[in-house]
């Protein structure tokens, strides 16, 4: 199993590196803009405050990019990547029990996604805390943060489930990611149109996510060549 997970991780190394680089660029962007425009004066408290506020904004953007784009990309690449480059045909001749092969891919996908979510979430919290220190009070009351985390977790679960479902059917990660984004957009429109109970989505979305993840895993397990 460790053998398989090592292979799955290494097989997707380039994608994981790319995700890291993109998140890094998002964080560095405000700093670069400030430097380029000559707005950063190291001896001025005000310019630090403005930089930190911009950083907080980009850390929020990073969280949402991770949730909406990187998470499906990682899941789709892990599940369909080997089908796309046909290395799954090599693995198919090896005596790897299908359950293990599927479990390894899902496990690596979940672990990698969680790692990036945790990373971007912690950076975001750090930025919020630092910015707040300028005002002498927390910018958000914890209750708000909890609410945001709940929304993010719900969307994560939905995106992951959709990614599992589509990537078990399609044979290219790019197609699968596009399908996930399309489905997510349709679902969001549907949820937002339910005016009377907008928060029904919190109940439906995680269930939908879990169910489609299970269906995806089952379809993968049914495949003779993963």
């Amino acid at each position: 199993m460790r053998n398989l997970m090592w292979k799955d991780l290494r097989q997707n190394r380039n994608l994981l590196l790319a995700v890291g680089v993109i998140l890094g660029v998002i964080y560095l962007l405000p700093l670069l803009v400030f430097l380029a425009m000559g707005l950063l004066n190291p001896f001025q408290r005000e310019s630090w405050r403005r930089l930190l506020e911009s950083l907080t904004v980009s850390s929020f953007i990073a969280v949402w990019v991770t949730v909406l784009l990187m998470l499906p990309a990682i899941a789709c690449s892990l599940i369909t990547g080997e089908r796309a480059d046909r290395t799954s045909q090599f693995a198919a001749y090896l005596p790897i029990p299908r359950g293990k092969a599927v479990a390894s891919r899902f496990a690596v996908a979940i672990l990698c996604s969680l790692a990036f979510l945790l990373l971007s979430g912690l950076v975001c919290l750090g930025c919020v805390a630092l910015t707040s220190s300028f005002y002498g009070r927390l910018a958000f009351i914890p209750n708000d943060l909890l609410q945001v985390a709940r929304v993010a977790a719900t969307i994560c679960l939905l995106m992951f489930g959709l990614a599992c479902f589509w990537s078990s059917l399609l044979s290219s990660p790019v197609q699968a990611v596009l399908a996930v984004l399309g489905t997510a957009a349709v679902l969001a429109t549907v949820f937002l149109r339910i005016h009377d109970r907008p928060f029904a989505a919190y109940g439906v979305a995680p269930v939908l996510g879990l169910v489609s993840a299970c269906v995806g895993a089952w379809i993968c397990h049914r495949r003779l060549v993963l």
């Binding site: 292979k7 097989q11 480059d85 046909r86 290395t87 799954s88 045909q89 090599f90 001749y93 090896l94 005596p95 790897i96 029990p97 299908r98 003779l224």
Partner: peptide, 18 residues
């Protein structure tokens, strides 16, 4: 199929080793 694959060696027409 896992038992079969354990006891059989197979070389396909095209190679897709990682």
């Amino acid at each position: 199929d896992t038992t079969v694959k354990r006891r059989v060696g197979y070389v396909p027409e095209q190679q897709f080793i990682y």
